[in-house]
Amino acid sequence: MATYLDFEKPIAELESRVAELRALTQDDESTGLSEEISKLQGRAAQLLAETYGGLNPWQKTTVARHPDRPHCLDYIDQLIERFTPLAGDRYFAEDAAIMGGIGTFRGRPVVVIGHEKGHDTETRIKHNFGMARPEGYRKAVRLMDMADRFAMPVVTLVDTAGAYPGVGAEERGQAEAIARSTDRCLSLGVPMVAVVIGEGGSGGAIAIASANRILMLEHAVYTVASPEAAASILWRDSTRAIDAATSMKITAQDLYELGVIDEIVAEPVGGAHRDKEGAVRRAGDAIAKALAAFDKMSPDEVRKQRHERFLNIGRSL
């Protein structure tokens, strides 16, 4: 059964009427209803397009967190051939909140790193809801080292509410692990493309998103702190998340205007969760285009482009 978000109620109603009518026509072949069905379907489609054309920041946050939205492993399955997952930080543990490995992307050997949130209770627990511990970031550093050594571009898929706030994570240096991972992104001599596929949450996101090109899905959000956390910092009241989301400029459209991201990847009508395959394919096309731009660049040039890209942010607002 499809999960409908709060603001999708009118669409859900229309779609369920269509389903009811369909069920009726299966029993009774009379043609009077088929016209009604197509009329309702047309209205539902129109309403869907209209609704998704004008989502507010909070609605986008809920879309970005939609349980049926394609996650990191969906992208890897569809886009990366011969994917070989690699595990462990070699210091303490394997952290499945960040998945990574090697494979080929449209014929090009690549290193892929991404946050995975999981899609049911079991996998969500396995991947810790996409909230990484220091080991996840240290694994990312290890994979980036390898990418540099074997001259493989790095593709990252960003989808996290933030790094995990826990006692163990703090004891083992969560902050340092994030800082080193950001550091490593910025020192890479190979091109790096980051795609914010759902939620780009805070330092937990930037640790694998300090790339040459940053792409963002149309309904993804990218924030300095999750709206809940920001509300709790600003007003000591996490229930004011909607206010925080509205004032912080977190949508792909806002971030493009601010020069923080390079490209918005259009999602299928009604969001990526209504056509996972289509959404992933479009992201794949955008990644291929972004990588191609660095084909003739030397490692120093690639690094320089990345540095200038970040240093220029905010200088011409």
């Binding site: 800082a179 950001t182 992104c185 910025l186 805070s202 330092g203 930037i206 300090s210 990218y222 924030t223 300095v224 912080m248 400029k249 977190i250 971030l255 601010l258 923080v260 970040f310 942010i313 905010g314 607002l317």
Partner: peptide, 8 residues
Amino acid sequence: ILSLMQMP
């Protein structure tokens, strides 16, 4: 987000 960008 402009604050977050100060990290990199």
